[in-house]
């Protein structure tokens, strides 16, 4: 990996918010999955050559303080908007992964001005028309993490079957962080779809056709609601697009940003 990210923390609403940062160029904020931040990954690295990449730990995840009062992803979005103000970010591109995609969509909906671009990679936040979102509360946390990959062989690379002990505490903590903000309804909002209709940012929604966590059919719901949205389907990919297809997803982010700037 080429970039050595700088680790920082700032105070937001009385808590500490930790983030990684590397690269130069237009600002790109990346929000992680529900299983927590995966550190500085090849996906971040691929983007740092064209962006100033900022990857915060969402409050309650990773090394950011838990906001005891938070009860909804919208609360986390409010904290992250405060974080962007603290950093003095006025124009930025926002990319959200899975649960982070939901938080990103809430942020974009409530942001004072339009973002440069919004990229949502298999986002939670909308109730699927058919099927249900995979329920991690009813699952072993390690099996849930593995279900984020389309193929068991890929899951073995990141979460080998015999390595659950080293991940257990982290996954348990993040499962609790999720339970605190989206116990029910689980992983979707009845309010978000209504407010999405007023989204000003150009949006790109990306989905793996083999996603086992959130049904790929959700992509068309997002497309129907967002005024300016393109959909990119990745054949055979699972839920963790950033881990399974880092270069492909990074290219989509770059293209979304360029297209928005040209428009």
């Amino acid at each position: 990996m080429g970039f050595e990210p700088q680790e920082s923390a700032i105070e937001v609403a009385g808590g500490s918010l930790r983030y990684l940062q590397a690269g130069a160029g237009p600002t790109l904020l990346v929000l992680h999955h529900d299983i927590g931040p995966s550190g500085w990954t090849p996906f971040h690295d691929a983007l740092a050559s064209g962006f100033r990449v900022i990857a915060p730990d969402i409050p309650g995840f990773g090394l950011s303080t838990r906001a005891e009062w938070a009860r909804h992803p919208r609360d986390l979005a409010a904290l992250l908007l405060a974080f962007t103000r603290r950093l003095g970010l006025e124009h930025y591109t926002l990319a959200g992964l899975g649960f982070g995609g939901w938080v990103a969509a809430e942020m974009a909906s409530y942001a004072p001005g339009p973002l440069d671009a919004l990229i949502l990679a298999s986002p939670a936040g909308l109730k699927p028309d058919a099927e249900d979102i995979l329920d991690q509360i009813m699952m072993d946390p390690y099996e849930y993490a593995r279900a984020g990959f389309a193929e068991d062989e890929t899951a073995d690379r990141f979460y080998p079957r015999d390595a659950f002990k080293e991940h257990r505490d982290r996954l348990d903590a993040h499962r609790e962080a999720i339970a605190r903000v989206t116990w029910k309804p689980y992983m979707y909002s009845y309010e978000l779809p209504e407010i999405l209709r007023e989204m000003q940012a150009p949006a790109t929604v990306v989905w793996g056709t083999a996603n086992r966590v959130i049904p790929p059919a959700c992509a068309s719901r997002w497309a129907a609601l967002l005024p300016d949205c393109r959909v990119r389907l990745l054949d055979g990919a699972g839920h963790f697009l950033d881990l399974e297809r880092p270069d492909e997803l990074a290219r989509i982010v770059r293209e979304a940003h360029s297209a928005a700037r040209e428009a």
């Binding site: 509360i137 009813m138 072993d140 348990d172 609790e176 339970a179 605190r180």
Partner: peptide, 10 residues
């Protein structure tokens, strides 16, 4: 009982 159902978050 499944441990993950016995030990629900928090």
């Amino acid at each position: 009982v499944h441990p993950h159902l016995q030990n629900l978050p928090g």
